[in-house]
Write a protein that binds this DNA or RNA. Sequence first.
DNA 1: CCACGTTTGAAACAATTGTTTATAACCAGG
DNA 2: CCTGGTTATAAACAATTGTTTCAAACGTGG
Lengths: 221, 221
Amino acid sequence: MAQNDTVTRILDTAEVLFAERGFAETSLRTITSKAKVNLAAVNYHFGSKKSLIQAVFARYLDPFTERFHGALDDLERRYRGQAIPLEELLETMARSVLEVPAERNSLKVFMRLLGLAYSQAQGHLRRYIQQDYGSVFTRFTELIRQATPELPDAERFWRLHFMLGSVIFTLSGLDALRDIAEKDYDEHVTVRDLVRRLRPVVVAAMQAPLPAPAPATAQEA
Amino acid sequence: MAQNDTVTRILDTAEVLFAERGFAETSLRTITSKAKVNLAAVNYHFGSKKSLIQAVFARYLDPFTERFHGALDDLERRYRGQAIPLEELLETMARSVLEVPAERNSLKVFMRLLGLAYSQAQGHLRRYIQQDYGSVFTRFTELIRQATPELPDAERFWRLHFMLGSVIFTLSGLDALRDIAEKDYDEHVTVRDLVRRLRPVVVAAMQAPLPAPAPATAQEA
DNA sequence: CCACGTTTGAAACAATTGTTTATAACCAGG
DNA sequence: CCTGGTTATAAACAATTGTTTCAAACGTGG
């Protein structure tokens, strides 16, 4: 029934095609023909291509934010006011991300979509995500702030984005990188492997010594 | 003269438009009209849109690889056979990247283009870059290998890409992130500032402790 | 000055895009 | 049964895309 439903058939097909070809490079005709659905169905059910893209994201992000909020609730309850250790916070986020595909498609697709959203020029997508799902991120960063009181606010901001870049970049480009890695080293790596490898790196990065202060150059005030 | 030359006018306009809107989202008509050049000029001088894109990259990457190779030559000469320290290698790479805009446009545009190239689905662009400019990267990673003998090869491979992600992600999304950072914290941050902030983070990440070995899960051999 | 290869110009091309329209099929509730 | 709103279908739409064509303009070597 869910499989035969036109709406979910469109979403299922669209998310895969978007992930492997990008948004602009995926036409509605490609989606509808592969989904065995009439072309007009997209505009009928979603209104426009743009809305379809957002719907694809919502289907991933809604379960994720719910889980993540719940996990953070648990954490705060357990630590009741005390600062939650950095490792716990990162661990919780990783666990929440890894749990998403239980309700949806592969985690690989999800990360690829996220990567596309952030690299999208102009950034209507990033703005949409920020607007509808920014609150979890805000809550998370605030907890990170309490876990790393020694870091200046600006420094923490940038380091968080450094790490966000590591995660999104490697996980969204996983297929291409895996090909290289498999050829050069034996290993067949999974998303979970990468998350495991990311953990100590992220912790070390957040706890790295502060950079040398900016040198006063001639062209600056 | 260089300014009046049709070819360079096309390239100058294209790289800016590509950087701020993406490749698929930038039409040849937008480029040629903004460059005050006839529409057919692109196909006449470059053959196709695809070739134009590659030409835009070549104009950045050619000077970069030349400088970078030269800088690595200097380093190897100075250390004559001994392993070059990690910090030196990173410092050299950063300096080479920062020097590029001296010959070309802004560094911001360069990083944005790199980010787009890597996030491009399918990845013909990534393949083109790898094919024509992969040798410098290979040389660099070999030196990194000698500088971090304690790291398993696969681990170093992934950590390098983690860091590549940090750099490309933050620097290519600089404009959007800067807006947030400026609002929340005072600072007006430049690319050079980010590179300075990246240094200790990258070093710490590369030297982080090894991850816990992969747990033997049920579905794995 | 003329002739010839190079570059520019305006127009047309064929293909593809997202979206809309009008009609048909469906499928419940009276 | 049939009637009314919901969904599916095929066709057309208008706009935009990259590319090609062919004639005009250019500029340089004879």
